[in-house]
């Protein structure tokens, strides 16, 4: 944010209470957005972690194993595993790639690492925003106290 590199501390004193409130609310909104993306990333990480551990178990399954095949989320039919060495991976935007089970596991694990990096960035940004908001709110409270006195 510009308030940080523009010597925000100095600026804050020059702003009117209304302006301060506006800035604080804006910062709160940004925090909210960051929190949402934090949650999104967290659930994506869980998803890929789950997929990776499932794939590790899947590797040991044998071809021809009897199973209930889920054709839709609410319908199953008896069938057997046909291929346990290759799987299809949804890589997003409607594209699927055939990979070996190891390749799929690797893909999921790399995704987790990548997402965790993103997550860390979001966490850092979130902390910064919250700190800034705190500063602005303190300045606002001071102004109001001055005005009341």
């Amino acid at each position: 944010m510009s308030s940080q590199d523009g010597g925000g501390g100095l600026n804050l004193g020059a702003l009117s209470p209304d302006q301060l409130k506006q800035v604080a609310d804006q910062l709160a909104q940004e925090s909210q957005r960051l929190t949402e993306s934090f949650e999104g990333l967290q659930s994506a990480i869980n998803k890929y972690n789950r997929s990776a551990s499932t794939l590790k178990k899947f590797k040991d399954e044998s071809e021809g194993k009897e199973m209930l095949v889920p054709l839709t989320s609410s319908m199953y039919v008896r069938g057997s595993l046909e291929e346990t060495s290759k799987i299809l991976v949804d890589i997003g935007t409607g594209y699927y790639v055939e990979k070996s089970v190891e390749g799929g596991t690797d893909f999921c694990e790399r995704k987790v690492v990548l997402l965790k990096e993103h997550l860390q960035k979001v966490v850092d940004a979130l902390q910064q925003k919250q700190q800034q908001e705190q500063q602005v709110r303190t300045a606002l409270a001071q102004k109001q106290a001055q005005a009341a006195a």
Partner: peptide, 15 residues
């Protein structure tokens, strides 16, 4: 069929 083994991963099965 390719069925959804877990989120985003599909495996082959025969019915």
């Amino acid at each position: 069929v390719d069925f959804e083994l877990t989120d985003g991963i599909f495996a082959k099965a025969k019915v």
